[in-house]
Write a protein that binds this DNA or RNA. Structure first.
Length: 632
DNA sequence: ATAGGGTTAG
């Protein structure tokens, strides 16, 4: 009884507010139900017809029916019809309630018509939390972060309380740490930090600003969470190259009984990629098969195989992918180029031009890198000079870097200097380091000295540049200058990072450092290493002690050369694996000249395939040659 | 009617 009278009162208020026609009384129920019927059947033309009839007769349906109609427009992506509904709702002095205007707002946002949405928003007689949140979310989604933040401030001034929806939207728009901290403290003040949406948005926001400790703090306070919160923190670690922690959290997530999905696996693959864990990556691949058509996940898998040096697997994945976007193509092109298969990379770029998506900034980087690797100076210049015209991409710092690399490799030092002068941005440490590497390879002491000094001007802590300068001076017997460089280094507390190499054997990572005797099999490894060196010496191997133009430490005796970490790792790989298994090593510093020769010879002697990944490049050793073409 | 997580280079 009570319910019925309440409904009557409600109806009466609707009439008095919206009805200026006597006819309305009679028709509202039947018009509404006919409109609703068409909407439920997703029959947009009929629904619009009904709307026209209603307008001619001056009758209106209720807000629920209009909201269904708008849903129907959205489902059909019918922008014109949507705008027509908007007109209808405001025609003849009808004053829709906030609820209905919010539905319209949402429609414009979903149609990506932010301009229209904002005009409507400005005209609203009153705005509730949903109106504000709809706009804030639209702006943060469109990366118009300033606007989103400003709206939050206006909202608070208007006395409207943000809810968890508002906060999870606005967190995506926090570009400055101070904004984020303020939003975070507001969240704590109103007690919304335990909402899973807010929590994952917080973790993600801190992670994007590089505040990993804050992110993990938010994660640790979690009492009840869901899979997305776990995914957020795993992604945070994976994106900041802390693969170990990402994998550890992945284990915890599974132990806690959460279902892992595409997002989890993508981050886990990224962790495998950064740690070069090919075997674990293969195991994850098995789980990936459940989500075969997921593009992002497949791209991550593709990248994992490229970066772990298994191009066979990468090509298999790439060819099997039904959908390939610009990232898939770029990943494959760069992967081939980085692993030394330049011609294949360039051929793939040709087929991309024919049947693939439009190349982007990063694609061109891979192409230039391939040219550099293959020593194709003219082809490199061609791509570099035509990228603007063909693809509308202005060459950026990285493209100049690739071109410098290409010229350096080809020994064109003068052209390098000219290109540095031509650059549209200031040379940075990387620029000068590229020049320095070229000078080292082509033995140009004067230019090397100049480049090293430029590096030190920009980065007082650059170890390599100091050591190199000191070696150059020593070679020219300029002892005062040597002493000066050493004094500066000591004064600035500069030390060389010890070289370290890692290899995965039986799902375990083994680390090797020069002079470190902690590995359980170190004696065996050293014995074996000495045997190899002796056998190779008989075959004509001479340790490369020329360190004048290498940034190595001064105690460059044959003894320490002998025990460089990558040599230990190679020997350990040989004794651990059968002949047909590829030995994969990754290390923190660039490989030295002597280890490079050693690896080439041992690959031939033992008929092995050895892959060494340093911070920038890959070396595939096979049959006495290296894929890098002896330039790195 | 409004909300959160994943891919290429450096």
């Amino acid at each position: 009884m009570k319910g019925v009278s309440k409904r009557l009162v409600l109806l009466r208020t609707t009439w008095s507010r919206s009805c200026s026609h006597v006819a309305f009384h009679h028709n509202v129920a039947s018009e509404t139900s006919s409109l609703l019927n068409h909407c439920y059947n997703r029959d947009l033309p009929k629904a619009m017809q009904t709307l026209d009839t209603m307008e001619k007769r001056g009758v209106w349906a209720d807000a629920i029916a209009y909201s269904e109609l708008i849903k129907c427009c959205l489902a059909h992506r019918a922008v014109r019809e949507g705008k027509r509904v908007h007109q209808h709702i405001f025609s003849n002095g009808y004053q829709p309630k906030t609820f209905l205007i919010n539905v319209l707002l949402n429609m414009y946002v979903k149609f990506n018509l932010l301009e229209e949405a904002h005009i409507l928003f400005d005209k609203m007689p009153e705005r509730n939390v949903v109106s504000w949140t709809t706009m804030i979310s639209a702006y943060s989604y469109a990366k118009l972060n300033d606007r989103a933040m400003r709206l939050l401030i206006f909202m608070l001034r208007d006395g409207v309380m943000p809810n968890m929806y508002t906060f999870s939207s606005v967190l995506r728009a926090c570009e400055r740490l101070c904004d984020l901290k303020q939003v975070h403290s507001s969240i704590l003040k109103v007690g919304l930090e335990s909402d899973v949406f807010v929590r994952s948005a917080l973790i993600d926001a801190y992670s994007k600003l590089g505040e990993l400790l804050e992110a993990v703090g938010v994660f640790r306070e979690m009492v009840t969470g869901d899979a997305v919160v776990w995914n957020s923190i795993i992604a945070a670690y994976a994106q900041h190259s802390d693969g170990d922690e990402a994998l550890e959290l992945y284990k915890c997530m599974r132990r806690a009984g959460f279902t892992t999905d595409q997002s989890t696996l993508t981050s886990v693959l990224r962790a495998c990629t950064s740690l070069s864990l090919l075997e674990l990556g293969r195991q994850i691949h098995v789980h990936v098969l459940k989500f075969e058509e997921d593009l992002i996940l497949n791209n991550a898998l593709l990248d994992m195989y490229c970066k772990c040096g298994s191009l066979e697997d990468a090509k298999f994945i790439f060819n099997r992918m039904a959908d390939k976007d610009v990232i898939s193509w770029s990943t494959m092109i760069s992967g081939l180029a980085q692993n030394g298969f330049s011609m294949e990379a360039l051929n793939l770029f040709d087929s991309m031009k024919v049947s693939g998506p439009r190349p982007n900034y990063i694609t061109i980087l891979g192409v230039l890198f391939a040219c550099s690797h293959a020593g194709l100076v003219n082809e490199g210049w061609h791509h570099f000079r035509s990228m603007k015209n063909l693809y509308g991409i202005d060459p950026g710092r990285e493209h100049y870097g690739c071109m410098l690399d290409l010229l350096g490799r080809a020994g064109k030092l003068d052209e390098m200097v000219a290109l540095i002068r031509e650059m549209n941005c200031e040379p940075d440490v990387v620029t000068w380091r590229t020049l320095l590497d070229a000078c080292r390879a082509h033995r140009n002491v004067d230019l090397a000295t100049y480049a090293a000094k430029e590096i030190i001007k920009l980065d007082r802590q650059d170890t390599g540049a100091y050591v190199l300068l000191s070696n150059i001076y020593a070679n020219s017997k300029m002892w005062d200058d040597v002493a000066e460089v050493r004094r500066t280094m000591n004064a600035r507390g500069i030390r060389k990072e010890p070289g370290c190499s890692w290899i995965e054997v039986n799902n375990q990572i083994h680390a090797f450092v020069v002079g470190d005797k902690s590995h359980p099999q170190i004696d065996n490894i050293n014995r074996k290493l000495n045997q190899y060196i002796n056998r190779l010496t008989e075959a004509g191997y001479v340790p490369d002690k020329n360190f004048v133009l290498q940034d190595l430490e001064e105690e460059q005796s044959e003894c320490s050369l002998r025990h460089h970490s990558e040599k230990l790792a190679i020997v350990f790989g040989i004794i651990s694996f059968p002949r047909e298994k590829t030995i994969r090593i990754w290390k923190n510093l660039k490989i030295c000249g002597d280890c490079h020769i050693f690896a080439k010879l041992i690959a031939k002697l033992e008929q092995r395939h050895i892959v060494i990944r340093d911070p920038i490049r890959y070396h595939h050793f096979q049959d006495g040659v290296c894929s890098c073409g002896d330039y790195w």
